[in-house]
Amino acid sequence: KELVLVLYDYQEKSPREVTVKKGDILTLLNSTNKDWWKVEVDDSQGFIPAAYLKKL
């Protein structure tokens, strides 16, 4: 599985998104959309702007 590093805090703005903190390491589930990547946070899944993430 691929991991990503969160570069900036992000507060979810819709139920399909997730809240993350700078420095979090998350599992990347889908990066086919260049603007929004799907990640797994704890036991939930959701989208975060790709610009907030860096592949490890």
Rank of each mutant, 00 (worst) to 15 (best):
K1H: 11
E2M: 13
E2P: 10
E2G: 10
L3P: 02
V4C: 11
V4L: 03
L5Q: 08
L5C: 09
L5W: 05
L5N: 01
L5I: 12
L7A: 03
L7H: 01
Y8R: 14
Y8A: 13
Y8G: 06
Y8F: 13
Y8L: 10
D9T: 05
D9V: 03
Y10A: 01
Y10N: 01
Y10P: 00
Q11A: 12
Q11I: 14
Q11C: 12
Q11E: 13
E12S: 15
E12N: 12
E12R: 15
E12Y: 11
K13L: 09
K13R: 13
K13Q: 13
K13T: 12
S14W: 11
S14I: 06
S14H: 11
S14K: 07
P15K: 10
P15G: 11
P15H: 10
P15I: 09
P15A: 12
P15E: 12
R16T: 11
R16I: 12
R16M: 13
R16L: 13
R16W: 15
R16A: 12
R16D: 12
E17F: 08
E17W: 07
V18Y: 07
T19H: 07
T19D: 05
T19P: 02
T19C: 08
V20M: 02
V20E: 01
K22E: 07
K22F: 05
G23M: 03
G23Q: 01
G23L: 02
G23N: 05
D24L: 07
D24Q: 15
I25F: 04
I25T: 05
I25L: 06
L26P: 00
L26W: 04
T27F: 11
T27C: 11
T27Y: 11
L28M: 03
L28E: 01
L29A: 03
L29K: 04
L29C: 05
N30C: 13
N30G: 06
N30R: 05
N30D: 15
N30P: 03
S31K: 06
S31G: 11
S31D: 14
S31V: 07
T32G: 09
T32K: 10
T32C: 13
T32L: 08
N33V: 04
N33D: 14
K34D: 12
K34M: 09
D35T: 14
D35Y: 15
D35E: 11
D35I: 14
D35N: 14
W36V: 05
W36R: 04
W37F: 04
K38G: 05
K38V: 14
V39Y: 01
V39C: 07
E40W: 08
V41T: 15
V41H: 11
V41E: 01
V41R: 11
V41S: 13
V41D: 05
D42L: 12
D43W: 06
D43F: 10
D43G: 15
S44W: 15
S44L: 14
Q45K: 09
G46K: 08
G46E: 10
G46S: 08
F47E: 04
F47V: 06
F47Q: 04
I48A: 13
I48W: 02
I48P: 02
P49G: 02
P49I: 04
A50V: 07
A50W: 03
A51K: 14
Y52I: 15
Y52V: 12
Y52L: 09
L53E: 02
L53P: 02
K55P: 11
K55M: 08
L56W: 07
L56S: 03
L56Q: 05
L56M: 09
